[in-house]
Design a protein around this nucleic acid. Structure first.
Length: 795
DNA sequence: TCGAGGCTATTTTTT
DNA sequence: ATAGCCTCGA
C-alpha cells in the first residue's frame, strides 16, 4: 500500500513458520519487529475493547492485519473465530493478502473476513426462515436485489398507490427506505416524526415493499444488515451462538459505520467485548449516506474501559503536506484529536494556484503533468503517470480534464465510473442468466421480456402479470399460460412463446451439469438476440458494450456454474481491471479514500463547489465540517506534492459562473504553501474574480501569461533549478503511434464521440468533426472506421 | 408499440 | 451542456 512497505520488516515474516515449530508451541513473532510503539500496542492489546485512532498514512492496515496474525499465532483464536469486517471488497481482499503474507499461508481459512454485507449474507442464509412471519418467510436461497430491481419494484408500488411519481420519485422513496434501513428501522419501528415523509405514504409503501420482497424471496442491500439486527434481537439463542463463534471482532473504517452496522457490532460484541475498531474521525466523509461519526466518538462510553491507541506517526507524506492538512482540519470542532507527525524532512510545499477558468485549470494541470512525466521538474524528478492523481469534488469536474487530456494525448483513467456489473448490458445479460437458473425470478423476467424489442409493450406485460397473479404462478409460467390461452396473441404472442420456450430449454441446460455454463451463457445471449441487438446498434458505445459482454462471459469461466457466478456478483460488484499502461488517475475525493499518490492535484477549490453549497445548505455546520474532512482526505493522499487550484470561472449547467476561492484555502498555513497565483486572482481581495468575464481566448491567454509572470511562478522556476521554460505543447512520448495512415476526409471512430470525419492532420494530432462538433484529438485515440468493430463479433 | 422531440434536474457512492 | 424521462403522434 505504501512505498514504505518496500522495506517493511514484515516481509521477512512471509516465510512460513515450520509446522514442527508451531506444534512444539514455539511462537516466534518476527512480524512484531519494526512496529512503532503505538502500532505494537495496537497489535498486542488483544483482549477487551480497543479504539485504534489511525490517522491518514499511519499504517492502519498493517496494524490491523498484524493484530489478526498475532491473534492466530498466540492461539487466542482459530481462523474461523475471528470476525473482521470492512466496507469494501477491495479492503477485504487487501487484508486477506496481507495476512497471508504475514503468515506465509493462504487465508482461505479466514471465512469471516469480509464486508459487512457479505458476512451478513452468510449469517442470514443460515436463518433465512426466521425472517418474515410464519406464513411468509425468506428461504435460504433468497436473492439479493440490485438498485435497478429495487427502483423498478418501487415504481410498481407507487403506481399501485396512485401517487404522482413526478412529485415523489421512486428514487426518493428508495433513498428514504434506505435511510431507514441504515438505522435498522423496520416499517413498524419508523418513528412518528418520520412517518410524514413522502406525503405520509412513506411507511405504508415501505411496508408494501418489504412484503413484496418477502414474496419474491429477495432482500436488498439494506436488508442484509437490518435483517441480521432484527434476527439477533428477536432470537437471543441465535445471537449467543454467533457471539460464541466470534471470539474476536475487528472493524475497519469504524467512522463510516451507520446505525444498523453499529447495532450489528454491538450485539455481537456485547458478550465478550473483544472488539477492536479502527478509524479516523477526521476521515468521516459518508455522513450523507447514513454514517454516524458519533459511533466512533462514543466508543469509549459504549465499551467502558476501552483502550484508546493513537497511531500518529505518518509514513506517507512530507511535513509540508501534513502541516497543511493538520491546520485545515483543526478548524473542525468535536474531534477526538490526533497530531500527525513524521520523521521525514524537506519536500515541496503545498502549491496553490488560481486560474481564469476551469479550462485554463485543466490546461495548466495537463502541462504540469507532462512536465513531471518528462522529468522537467528537478525537485520532483521524472515520474510515471501512475504516480499522479487528480482528485475532484464532483464527477462533472472530470470532463474538463478528459477533454484536455484527450486533446494532448495524455493517457488517463477515470476511477470509480459506473461499475462493470452496473452497466446496462451486463445487467440485462445477468437477468437472462438469472432466469435460466431460477425461472421464478420475476424481476429478471420483467427486465428482459422486451429486451431486445419483441413487440411486447406495457399492455402485453400487464396481461402476463394478470395471468400469473390469477393462477399464482411466476411471470414466466404466467407468460406461457397467457400465450396458450391466447390472452397475448399476434406478433407479440409469437415472440413471447419463443422466449418462454427458449427459457425452458436454457433452464434445463442450466441445471444439467454436463452442459458447459460458459457455452450456455454464450448461447443464451446469442439465441435471445441480445448480442445481435448491440451489433445492430450504431451508437458509439455499442462496441464497448459488446466488449463488456465478452468480458462477462470470460468472467464466467472462473466459476463452477451460473449459480455460483450469480451469487458472487450480487455481493462483489467490483471488477476494476488493472490496465497495464501508464495513466494519470482521475477520481472523486470520495473515491480516493484509502489511496495514495506521490503527486496529487486538487482542482476546483471554490466556494460552492468545494465546500459544496448543497452540503452546507442541507447540513449546515455539520455539512461544512464533512466537506473539510474531505479536503483533509484529499491533501493527505499526497506523498510528495499536493497542488491545490481554483478557477475564477466555471461552466456549470451550461452557464458560465464566476466563483470565489474556497474558504478552505484561507485555512491553510501560509508557511507551508507556495502561492503560484497572480495577486489579482488571489490574496489582494477577489478583484479579478469579480470583474466582468469575457469568455474569449484573449482573456484566457492574458490570464495564463499573468500566472507565468507572477512572483510565485518565478519563485517556483528558481527553486526547481534547471529546466526548460514552462512546458507548453510538448510532444508526448507515450502512444506515439503517429497519424500515419490517416487521410483527410476519412471516417474514424472514437470511443466517446462516435463516428467522425477527419478534417485536418497535424503531426499526430487530428481535427475531427463529430456529430457534436469539432474536436482536436491525438490520432491514438481514434481508429479507422472499418476497424471499429462491427465485424468483430463477440461470440 | 415505438421513436422523436420537449422538459427538467443536475454531489459525493458501497454493498 | 446534457442525459434521462416523459409525452405525443405515427
Amino acid at each position: 500500500m505504501s512505498q514504505y512497505d518496500d522495506f517493511d520488516p514484515f516481509e521477512a515474516a512471509a516465510a512460513p513458520v515450520p509446522l514442527s515449530q508451531r506444534a512444539m508451541g514455539v511462537r516466534p513473532t518476527p512480524y512484531l519487529d519494526g512496529l512503532n510503539p503505538a502500532q505494537r500496542a495496537a497489535v498486542e492489546e488483544l483482549d477487551g475493547p480497543v479504539l485504534l485512532l489511525a490517522g491518514a498514512g499511519t499504517g492502519k492496515t498493517r496494524a490491523l492485519t498484524t493484530r489478526i496474525a498475532h491473534l492466530l499465532m498466540q492461539g487466542k483464536a482459530r481462523h474461523g473465530q475471528i470476525l473482521a469486517v470492512t466496507f469494501t471488497n477491495k479492503a477485504a481482499r487487501e487484508m486477506k493478502d496481507r495476512i497471508a503474507r504475514l503468515l506465509g499461508e493462504t487465508v482461505e481459512g479466514m471465512p469471516w473476513l469480509g464486508t459487512f454485507h457479505s458476512v451478513s449474507v452468510k449469517i442470514l442464509r443460515r436463518h433465512a426462515e426466521l425472517i418474515g412471519n410464519a406464513d411468509l418467510h425468506l428461504k435460504t436461497t433468497f436473492t439479493i436485489l440490485d438498485t435497478d430491481d429495487q427502483i423498478r419494484l418501487l415504481k410498481q408500488l407507487i403506481a399501485a398507490e396512485n401517487i404522482d411519481e413526478k412529485r415523489w420519485p421512486a428514487r426518493m422513496l428508495a433513498g428514504l427506505i434506505d435511510a431507514w434501513k441504515n438505522r435498522a428501522l423496520t416499517p413498524s419501528r419508523v418513528p412518528k416524526s418520520d412517518a410524514r415523509a413522502y406525503d405520509g405514504y412513506g411507511v405504508k409503501l415501505y411496508q408494501a415493499y418489504q412484503d413484496r420482497l418477502l414474496a419474491l424471496n429477495a432482500v436488498d442491500f439494506g436488508d442484509l444488515l437490518m435483517h441480521c439486527v432484527t434476527l439477533f434481537q428477536a432470537h437471543p439463542d441465535i445471537l449467543r451462538q454467533w457471539q460464541e463463534r466470534f471470539r474476536y471482532i475487528l472493524v475497519d473504517e469504524y467512522q463510516d459505520t451507520n446505525t444498523a452496522q453499529y447495532l450489528w457490532l454491538r450485539l455481537l460484541a456485547q458478550a465478550h467485548h473483544n472488539i477492536c475498531v479502527v478509524g479516523d474521525d477526521d476521515q468521516s466523509i459518508y455522513g450523507w449516506r447514513g454514517a454516524e461519526v458519533g459511533n466512533i466518538l462514543r466508543f469509549e462510553s459504549d465499551f467502558p474501559g476501552a483502550k484508546v491507541i493513537r497511531l500518529e506517526q505518518n509514513y506517507r507524506s512530507t511535513p509540508h503536506i501534513l502541516a497543511a492538512a493538520s491546520r485545515l482540519i483543526a478548524a473542525n470542532s468535536g474531534r477526538l484529536g490526533k497530531t500527525l507527525w513524521t520523521e521525514a524532512e524537506g519536500g515541496e510545499r503545498v502549491r496553490l494556484i488560481g486560474h481564469w477558468d476551469s479550462e485554463a485549470e485543466a490546461r495548466w494541470i495537463g502541462e504540469e503533468i507532462e512536465a513531471f512525466h518528462g522529468g522537467h521538474r528537478a525537485a520532483i524528478g521524472k515520474r510515471s503517470l501512475n504516480d499522479i492523481a487528480i482528485l475532484v469534488r464532483a464527477s462533472h469536474q472530470m470532463r474538463a480534464f478528459e477533454d484536455r487530456f484527450m486533446t494532448i494525448g495524455l493517457p488517463y483513467r477515470v476511477i470509480g465510473g459506473p461499475r462493470f456489473y452496473e452497466r446496462q448490458e451486463i445487467r440485462d445479460a445477468m437477468a437472462y442468466f438469472r432466469l435460466a437458473v431460477s425461472p421464478d425470478d420475476d424481476l429478471a423476467f420483467e427486465r428482459i421480456v422486451n429486451v431486445p424489442k419483441r413487440g411486447l409493450g406495457d399492455k402485453a406485460v400487464q396481461k402476463v402479470q394478470i395471468e400469473a397473479r390469477d393462477r399464482g404462478l411466476p411471470l414466466l409460467l404466467g407468460a406461457a399460460a397467457a400465450v396458450a390461452s391466447g390472452a397475448v396473441g399476434g406478433k407479440g404472442g409469437g415472440a413471447l412463446r419463443l422466449l418462454t420456450e427458449q427459457l425452458g430449454r436454457w433452464h434445463a441446460d442450466a441445471i444439467d451439469s454436463t452442459v458447459s455454463h460458459v457455452e450456455l451463457a454464450e448461447r443464451i445471449l446469442d439465441e435471445s438476440g441480445y448480442t445481435a441487438m448491440w451489433q445492430n446498434d450504431k451508437s458509439p458505445d455499442a462496441p464497448g458494450r459488446l466488449d463488456n459482454l465478452k468480458e462477462l462471459v470470460k468472467a464466467l469461466e472462473e466459476f463452477e456454474n451460473l449459480q455460483g457466478f450469480l451469487e458472487h456478483v450480487a455481493l462483489v460488484m467490483d471488477t476494476d481491471k488493472q490496465e497495464s499502461a501508464e495513466q494519470v488517475s482521475i477520481m472523486t475525493l470520495h473515491g480516493a479514500k484509502g489511496l495514495e499518490y506521490p503527486i496529487v492535484f486538487l482542482p476546483g477549490w471554490e466556494d460552492g463547489l468545494f465546500p459544496s453549497q448543497r452540503s452546507m445548505d442541507e447540513s449546515g455546520t455539520r455539512g461544512l465540517e464533512e466537506e473539510r474532512r474531505l479536503a483533509y482526505v484529499g491533501i493527505t493522499r499526497a506523498e510528495e506534492l499536493a497542488t491545490i487550484s481554483f478557477a475564477g470561472n466555471r461552466r456549470m449547467y451550461g452557464q458560465w459562473q464566476s466563483s470565489l476561492p474556497s474558504r478552505f484555502i484561507d485555512e491553510l498555513p501560509e508557511d507551508h504553501v507556495d502561492v503560484l497565483t497572480p495577486p489579482g486572482l488571489y490574496g489582494g481581495g477577489y478583484g479579478a474574480a469579480a470583474q466582468p468575464y469575457g469568455q474569449s481566448s484573449i482573456y484566457d491567454r492574458a490570464s495564463k501569461a499573468d500566472v507565468y509572470n507572477s512572483p510565485g511562478w518565478k519563485r517556483m522556476q528558481e527553486r526547481s533549478s534547471h529546466h526548460a521554460a514552462p512546458v507548453h505543447k510538448k510532444p508526448v512520448t507515450i502512444d506515439a503511434d503517429p497519424a500515419a495512415g490517416f487521410t483527410v476526409g476519412e471516417e474514424v471512430f472514437h470511443q466517446k464521440f462516435g463516428k467522425g470525419r477527419i478534417m485536418g492532420i497535424a503531426e499526430d494530432t487530428l481535427t475531427v468533426e463529430f456529430g457534436t462538433g469539432f474536436k482536436t484529438i491525438k490520432a491514438a485515440y481514434v481508429q479507422p472506421l472499418s476497424a471499429a468493430g462491427s465485424d468483430d463479433v463477440p461470440f
